[in-house]
Nucleic acid binder design. Structure first.
Ligand code: FES
Ligand code: FES
Lengths: 141, 141
DNA sequence: AGAATAAAAGAGTTTTTTATCTTTTTATTG
DNA sequence: CAATAAAAAGATAAAAAACTCTTTTATTCT
């Protein structure tokens, strides 16, 4: 469903939400090791998220990646859109050039339900809320 | 979501459902041109579907691909599983090694809803039923 | 039987995605 | 202000997915 990159990105964001804040930033290496994900690759992803202002970062000693208040009050949709592109939520499930109710493909009407589930997945809770649940219920990332 | 291969496969199966039967088989070329899909690549996909008995084929003059009665009374799930693998319906949305309610990832519970939508998409109508609707409503493939 | 036809199988090639390595820039601290 | 720590940027490499080409095998028709 999501690309591998996107899965890494979501997990990294949640890790940052739990373990970092403006006073305590994390290096790529720590995050990569915690998630068991290739470090240099994750670096690229975090840089991209940072460029799109979905996470925050500073250079230099004591620098690193972290989530600002604003970052963690957002939901995960932006993260997904930043990595996999916004089309994941709108494109035709059969790959036809446009998806529209005027010109639907054979699976269009049911695709809407599926897509609704997908949106709920990433939209109806903030990153902070997800992180809280992870801590309370000791979920794996 | 589905791989490109899988999208091609679904569309090809629907095309066969509409335009072929045991007495009138279609060559790869015709299907590929109708769907505007790379021919030799589609050939591989159809061969694979045929090996898994999701579509039917015969060699030689007047040979080609077609859907048997049994084929068109099945749903699309088998087609998807044959091309993209059965994991698409069961694997963790964040790519964790196992997906289970005992050991859920942060998105697991909502992932179930999403996955339900996905299953409905491919499971709760037969290929024949989809094909009928395509004909009646003149849908694009 | 022999020619023609069409899928099956096998062996490439290209493109995209995933992953690594190196250098540069920026901030911090002593 | 020098030394250092860390992200940013750039360039390269490996793996996977998408796509192509060639040969083989089965079937039909003359
Ligand atoms: S047209 Fe295919 S999903 Fe909407
Ligand atoms: S554990 Fe991640 S979706 Fe079930």
């Amino acid at each position: 469903m999501f690309s591998k990159s996107c899965k890494y990105a979501i997990r990294a964001v949640l890790y940052l939400a739990i373990h970092s804040n403006a006073e305590h930033k994390l290096g790529v290496k720590e995050v990569a090791e915690a998630l068991d994900v290739p470090g240099p690759f994750l670096a690229k992803l975090l840089q991209q998220l940072s460029r799109h202002h979905l996470i925050s970062s500073t250079k230099g000693p004591n620098g690193g990646f972290y989530l600002s208040k604003a970052n963690s009050n957002a939901n995960l949709r932006g993260v997904v859109e930043s990595i996999d592109g916004p089309e994941v939520f709108t494109s035709c499930i059969l790959g036809l050039p446009v998806c529209s109710s005027n010109n639907p493909c054979p699976l269009h009407s049911r695709a809407l339900i599926y897509r609704q589930g997908l949106l709920e997945l990433v939209e109806d809770q903030t990153i902070k809320e997800v992180a809280k649940r992870v801590e309370r219920q000791e979920l794996k990332i």
